[in-house]
């Protein structure tokens, strides 16, 4: 009888803990805003126009090992899917294409598929070779490509994290920033 109660209490403890963590993760995920200015699958947890005071937004960055963006200095966007809604697969080739980003400095980084752990596969604005019309085009592929190229390396699935540093001290609202499209090209 006593052992049965003990098992029941342990089960309830475990269940309560799981419910709390699952609902917390769900709530954090829900605080993201889909970015629609340029179309595409980008999301942001940071509005860009007010300091982060929402604990769920703060938790999103800190629990994933990243400093929250500072107001006026940085905007952060994340994408775990391509324009057609499919997950980003390390075996496929992708083209990141769009207008010139309105920032003094930016970084496109590959992270694990939940955008949790950033990898050291990054591409920054000073390295960009712009298209003749000034737009950007970066290819993500395991095989070397001409022009701007990033390799997903060992990542079987990945996410993209785009960090913009406008440099003016004034952020645009994240929702009006024109972001590049993520198009899947070849896929074995």
């Amino acid at each position: 009888m006593r052992l049965g109660s003990l098992i029941k209490a342990a089960g309830i403890l475990f269940l309560g803990g799981v419910i709390g963590i699952v609902t917390a993760q769900w709530s954090i995920e829900r605080t993201a805003t889909a970015m629609t200015a340029g179309g595409g699958p980008w999301k942001s947890w940071f509005s860009g126009t007010a300091s982060i005071r929402n604990p769920y937004v703060n938790a999103h960055y800190l629990m994933f090992g990243r400093l929250p963006p500072a107001l006026g200095q940085e905007l952060l966007f994340e994408a775990t899917r391509d324009d057609d809604g499919a997950g980003l697969d390390g075996d496929c080739d992708y083209v990141i294409q769009g207008p010139r980003l309105s920032a003094r400095w930016w970084q496109l980084a590959l992270a694990d598929e939940d955008a949790k752990q950033p990898s050291d596969v990054t591409f920054t604005s000073p390295r960009l070779i712009a298209e003749p019309d000034g737009s950007m085009r970066i290819t993500i592929s395991r095989t070397p490509k001409a022009g701007n190229w990033m390799s997903p390396g060992d990542l079987s699935h990945f996410a993209l994290v785009l960090k913009l540093r406008p440099g003016s001290g004034l952020n645009n609202a994240a929702s009006v920033v024109m972001l590049p499209r993520i198009k899947r090209e070849a896929c074995p």
């Binding site: 309830i12 403890l13 269940l15 309560g16 803990g17 419910i19 709390g20 963590i21 609902t23 917390a24 993760q25 709530s27 954090i28 604990p55 769920y56 938790a59 629990m63």
Partner: peptide
Amino acid sequence: LGAVSHLSYVL
């Protein structure tokens, strides 16, 4: 318990 672990996770 769920509420406690939820708040702990977030705060």
